[in-house]
Amino acid sequence: MSYWTAFILTLFSPVIGGFIYGLERIVRARMQGRVGPPLLQPFYDFFKLMDKRSIIIHSFHAFMGVMYLIGTWFALFVLLSGGDLLIAIFFHVLSLAFLVVGGFSVRSPYSVIGAMRELLHMVAYEPLYVLSAAALYLVTGTFQVSGILRSEHVPLIYLPLLFTAVLFSLPAILKKSPFDTAEAHQEIIGGPEIEYSGKFYEAVYTAKWIEYVYAFFFIFLFAGGNHILGALLIIFAFFFFNLLDNVTARVNFRQMVAFHWYILIPLAVINLMLIALWRS
């Protein structure tokens, strides 16, 4: 993927993410037997929020919300520009840092708890993504995203267990049930988002759309050079994670970390070891 394609794709990622989010709300509603909002509802919300009076706690907090958007955007560009996969993963951590520092910077219990849980989310899914970078390297022979996208091997065939693990941790990265402890609307009312409003809430909200693109592109990598399969994988992952969101209840953060560390990571490691042994 050239820099220009990556740049344009990154530029329009909020739109793509917004459509995914709109679609998600429809799909989820249909699964519950409701009609759901129109597809463009996220964008209507966007314009409504932009129009609102800006109310902030203090500038530092509001600024961190904006930076979260820019950081996530940049992280997505790092991923799409075809550079090193591990670096792109760690850039994602960097963008998360802004949300966390912003969440910590106000004297609001829900915001502070949410920021802390945001870090715990990172503790849960991050090792899995590092391991999948290593696994993709093992199959395709490169850490470069552009190399993986050109690879003749289809990593999915070699890494079924790892793919399952990533699929199950998708709710953790996107903060969906059962792993939505950081936002937990009924419990801590959105966590780090609670103190944002108006334009600044919109920034945080848009950053989450970009994260959709980020996460689904990661799924896309598991198809290697076979881009049609990649598109199918994304569609499958989309429906799977909406189903999961609908049928599960929220777990607490210990259960979330335990599930990742004791079930998903071992699954990934077993896959990694078997493939390495087979190759050697």
Partner: peptide, 15 residues
């Protein structure tokens, strides 16, 4: 140094 002007300051909402 960033100060958002034209915005109103409030205390934390905390629901």
């Amino acid at each position: 140094f960033v100060h958002f002007t034209g915005t109103d300051r409030v205390y934390e909402y905390t629901c």
